[in-house]
C-alpha cells in the first residue's frame, strides 16, 4: 500500500509539473488544425530561427565533446597542480545563471569590452551566440565521461602500451570504444542544453529576426507580441527536438546497459 501511494505521489508530481504543461503546449498548438501550425513554423523568421539553432548546436556540441573527453582524461588520469581547481571550474556553467554568462560575454566582447577594440563582430552575431552556448553546455560531456573512465581503470591502456600501441592508438582502439556510451550520453545532454538555451543567448544575440534569433528567442518574441498561436507552434517545434533527444538518450542508455 505504501509503495502504491509512493508511486502515485511520484507520478502525480511528474504529471502536474512536467507532463501537463508540455501537453498543454501541444494541445494549444494543434487546437486550430495542422494548417495554421504549418504556416507559423514555415515563416522566414521561424525557418531562420530553426536553422540558426541547429547551426549553433552543430558548432558548440562537437567542440564541447572534444574538450569534454580531454578534460575527463585529464581529471581521471592526469596528475597536475591545480587539478582540484580545474575540477571545480568545470562546474561553473552549472552554478552561474545563464543571464550572468551573457552579461559577462558582453563585458568581454562588447564594443566597450576588453576585446572590443579588436574589431571582431562577436556580440549581436553568430560567434556570440556560439560562445554563450558553449559556455552553458560545457560540463556535460566531461561529467558523463569521467566516471566511465574511472570505472574502466587504466589497466587496459597499460596492456595496450605493452603490446606496442602509442598514445593515439591506445586512445583510438581502447579508450574511446570503452567510453563511447558515456560520450554519446554526454553529447545528447549537451545538445539538449544547447538547443534550449535562452538566457545567455538572449543577452548577446541582438534578436535580429531571421539572422540572430534562435528558436527559444522566437518563442519569447511571439509571446510578447500576443501571437500566442505562433509561440505555441514554435514551442512545439522545440519540444519535438527535445523529445527526440530524450528518446535517443533513453534508447542509447538501454543499449549501454545491454553491452556492459
Amino acid at each position: 500500500m505504501a509503495r502504491l501511494t509512493l508511486r502515485f505521489v511520484a507520478l502525480a508530481y511528474l504529471g502536474v509539473l512536467l507532463v501537463v504543461p508540455v501537453g498543454v503546449v501541444f494541445y494549444r498548438t494543434f487546437e486550430h488544425g495542422l494548417g495554421s501550425v504549418y504556416d507559423s513554423i514555415t515563416t522566414p523568421a521561424a525557418k531562420g530561427a530553426f536553422w540558426l539553432t541547429v547551426e549553433v548546436a552543430a558548432i558548440a556540441v562537437p567542440l564541447n565533446a572534444v574538450f569534454g573527453v580531454l578534460a575527463a582524461i585529464a581529471l581521471v588520469r592526469g596528475r597536475f597542480p591545480g587539478k582540484r581547481l580545474f575540477d571545480a571550474l568545470l562546474d561553473l556553467p552549472f552554478a552561474v545563471s545563464p543571464v550572468v554568462v551573457g552579461l559577462a560575454l558582453l563585458l568581454v566582447w562588447g564594443v566597450d569590452g576588453w576585446f572590443g577594440g579588436l574589431g571582431l563582430q562577436v556580440i549581436f552575431s553568430l560567434p556570440g551566440i556560439v560562445l554563450a552556448t558553449i559556455f552553458v553546455s560545457l560540463p556535460f560531456v566531461a561529467r558523463e565521461v569521467a566516471p566511465v573512465l574511472r570505472e574502466i581503470g587504466d589497466e587496459q591502456e597499460q596492456a595496450a602500451a605493452t603490446l606496442g600501441a602509442n598514445g593515439w592508438q591506445t586512445f583510438r582502439r581502447v579508450t574511446l570504444p570503452a567510453i563511447r556510451w558515456g560520450l554519446v550520453y554526454g553529447v545528447v545532454l549537451a545538445t539538449a542544453r544547447a538547443i534550449g538555451e535562452f538566457g545567455a543567448v538572449s543577452v548577446v544575440s541582438g534578436k535580429i529576426s531571421g539572422e540572430t534569433e534562435t528558436l527559444t528567442l522566437l518563442v519569447e518574441k511571439r509571446f510578447q507580441n500576443f501571437d500566442l498561436a505562433g509561440a505555441y507552434a514554435a514551442s512545439a517545434l522545440l519540444a519535438v527536438i527535445a523529445l527526440a533527444t530524450l528518446i535517443a538518450m533513453t534508447v542509447l542508455n538501454k543499449r549501454r546497459e545491454d553491452t556492459t
Partner: peptide, 21 residues
C-alpha cells in the same frame, strides 16, 4: 625506453582484457 618499445609481454592479475573486442 617507454613500455611500448620494450617488446615485453605483460599479463595483469585482473586480465586487462579489451572488453569491446
Amino acid at each position: 625506453l617507454p613500455a611500448q618499445k620494450r617488446d615485453v609481454g605483460f599479463v595483469f592479475q585482473h586480465y586487462a582484457a579489451f572488453k569491446h573486442m
